[in-house]
């Protein structure tokens, strides 16, 4: 039972050794993190410099959504994206055929494909995200109860699982269309999660809630923190994230059976 944890530790160690070989990349990553953080914050500040509330969302509660966006995004950059991205694209394993070696390893392929590469710099992004959340909660001015905090953590975990499931499903599609960068499509849509889904018009809001459930990932945890989340929505999103996770795993495993290697 401890074997997966031991493997993850080894994957982290090798990733760190790999990454520290590229010194200058540290500064580039730092710059990119700060830019992502700065433009996100200034975007909210500029908007609320002109108005008090939008669709029932105040400055502080919108900042909460941004904080969740940055936090979940950091978890994604920590291991989900670095691991899954090596499957897709024109130089990806499925396209060039090196996925053979991944399949041959004596562990579950989905597990291996999801945790094998780590980017520890994302921990810095995680700190920035948590910082935004703390400032947002202080500005909300309401007392944070233990119940809110627990619901928030649960919603955040479900949001992360939902995000993982979507990314896994999009990566799994690579077995049907090896060259197509499905994850890029999602990257575009995921950016919309910076703002509460209420700020988008009807049809798009439905799309972001039910088809590509970006709303579950950021808006619901933020609502849990501001205390506006109904128990029904929480249970709904729990069921939703489990269903997505199961669906994505089935899709990925179905895709694995289609893989027929590549030859030169």
């Amino acid at each position: 039972m401890l074997q997966p944890l031991r493997l993850i530790r080894i994957f982290i160690e090798t990733s760190v050794k790999n990454e520290t070989a590229y010194n200058a990349n540290f500064w580039v990553s730092l710059l990119n993190s700060l830019l992502n953080f700065g433009t996100g914050i200034l975007g909210v500040i500029v908007l609320f410099g002109q108005i008090e509330t939008v669709g029932g969302w105040s400055f502080a509660s919108t900042l909460t959504v941004l904080g969740v966006y940055l936090t979940v995004g950091a978890v994604r950059d920590l291991f989900i994206s670095p691991s899954l991205d090596s499957l897709t694209g024109m130089d990806g394993e499925v396209w060039i055929g090196t996925f053979d070696f991944t399949l041959l390893r004596p562990v579950d392929t989905q597990f291996l494909a999801s945790v094998r590469r780590w980017r520890l710099f994302a921990l810095f992004d995680l700190l920035l995200g948590l910082g935004v959340l703390i400032v947002a909660v202080l500005r909300l001015g309401t007392a944070l109860t233990a119940a809110h905090l627990i619901t928030f953590l649960a919603a955040l975990a479900m949001g992360t699982i939902t995000l993982y499931a979507i990314l896994l499903a999009f990566s799994g599609l690579v077995f049907w269309s090896p060259g197509f960068l499905f994850s890029w499509v999602f990257n575009g849509i995921f950016q919309m999660a910076r703002y509460p889904v209420r700020l988008y018009p009807g049809a798009l809001r439905l799309l972001l809630t039910w088809v590509v459930p970006v709303g579950v990932i950021t808006t619901i945890p933020a609502q849990a923190l501001t205390g506006e989340l109904s128990p029904a929505a929480l249970i709904g999103s729990l069921g939703f994230s489990i269903a997505l996770f199961t669906g994505a795993s089935i899709l990925f495993r179905g895709g694995l059976r289609r893989y027929a290697s590549a030859s030169s």
Binding site: G43, L47, Q50, I51, V54, G55, L181, W184, V185, N187, G188, I189, Q191, M192, R194, Y195, R198, L199, Y200, P201, L204
Partner: peptide, 21 residues
């Protein structure tokens, strides 16, 4: 087309946010 889609999203977000506001 994928690249173009990605570049289109940020202005699109602010289109929706400002027009809702």
């Amino acid at each position: 087309f994928l690249l173009a889609f990605g570049w289109m999203v940020p202005p699109l977000i602010y289109l929706f946010v400002w027009s809702t506001a």
